[in-house]
Computed example of a mutant assay.
Amino acid sequence: MSVESYFINNHLNKVIIYGYCRPEDHTHYWIHHALFRALTAVLGTEVKVEWVDNTHSKPIAFFEQALIFTNVYKVKSDTRLPVVSNSVYLIHNHNPSKLQPLKYQRAIDSGHAMTYQVYRGQPEEGYLAIENEFAHFYSKAKKDAVLTWATDLLPHEIEANIEKIRQGVSTKIYDYSFVGSIWESNIDAFSDFVEAVVGVGKKVHQFGRLIKYRDVVRSWPSLISEKRNIDLDENQRITRCSHIAPAIQGYKQLDSPKRKGNYIPCRIFKNISYGAMGVTNNLSVHKMLNEKTIFDENLSSMVAKAEQWLESTRKTEDMLELMEIVKRDHTYVNRINSMVYCLNELSISPRRQRVHYDRWSFLAKSVKCRTKILLKRFKQTLSFQNQS
């Protein structure tokens, strides 16, 4: 069933993406940003796509007859989201081993909500594989799905980048580039990566935050770090202007047994769709992309293979082959279709009778949250005026 058919059959009239409306809120902003772009493209003008957070001033009726994307996370980005019976909830759980979707449990039990989590390896027994989709599963018993992230580009945008690669319009100005943060989860692998690049006499340009160990990172002589936010257009330009733009993962993300697999980041799909060769130290990524990437778990060997590839006469063909795979299988249009498939397989649909669960408790928490946000904004305004 298509997304459009799901809306028609279930009498839904809007999509609401809830939470993380600003890049500084959380890195999950970029997931919501990609979902917003894909849903807007798929649904066109027939169904309105809204994106709000805890600062909203919408009435409860606004959240009825909607497909709502939300999150379970320790920062409680969903405090002012009401749970109503005539809407469908797709709930991303950031950490299923530690967090429970308690707020939505009644909706899950009533059959109009399901959870989903990002792929971190083969799930436990009881999950069924989505046919012809590597690393995607669902559980009827748990009303849960396991999915990978994707690129934030739409298929026609990837096609435009494919044409740029064919024409060779981008001048290479960076040896190796990495758009993203360096922090405790990847500093170990990143240190080895930078050392390997030093060994071949080249430099790494990193664009993003240095969240921890800043002095250590800044001591690396071959790393040029620019601490600033990079928007989608500049991210694409940097990636296309790099000889190599790898998706480096920290060793903690790659510590599962090979038969289980490991977390697959969105960065690999993004970089390929922007116009870079797929380069990874993750075997699960290599398998998901039909073993077409430059892969080695040893970062020194990975860099050596990348350097060897740079001398190849098949560089353009190799990049185009991977870009076609991502365009066909790994956009958020694909992921939305997978989610709708799971909604159908799990018989998730809105209830006919309208019920607002835990109404009074919600209203009390909502008022408190709203007051807290307004007070914080007032203090920020005063601080700005004093600085002026």
Rank of each mutant, 00 (worst) to 15 (best):
I264V: 14
S338Y: 11
D231V: 11
A276G: 08
I16G: 00
I348M: 02
Q236C: 12
K74F: 12
D175K: 13
H92A: 08
V197R: 02
G44H: 07
C266H: 14
T381K: 12
T239H: 10
Q380S: 14
G278A: 12
N229G: 14
G201D: 00
R37K: 15
L210M: 11
N13C: 07
L310S: 11
H11V: 07
S388C: 08
L153N: 01
H33Q: 14
K164N: 11
K368V: 12
Q236L: 06
T151K: 00
K76Y: 12
F137E: 01
I238D: 01
S284K: 04
R166C: 10
K376F: 06
N386T: 12
L154K: 03
S87I: 03
K327W: 01
D152K: 11
S5G: 06
F36K: 14
L343C: 03
N386C: 07
G201K: 00
T171Y: 08
A196H: 02
K172S: 01
I31T: 15
E195T: 09
K143W: 00
M1P: 03
A129L: 11
G199Q: 10
T313N: 14
Y138V: 01
S139L: 00
H156N: 11
K292P: 04
L322P: 09
D25P: 02
R354P: 01
W220I: 03
L254S: 06
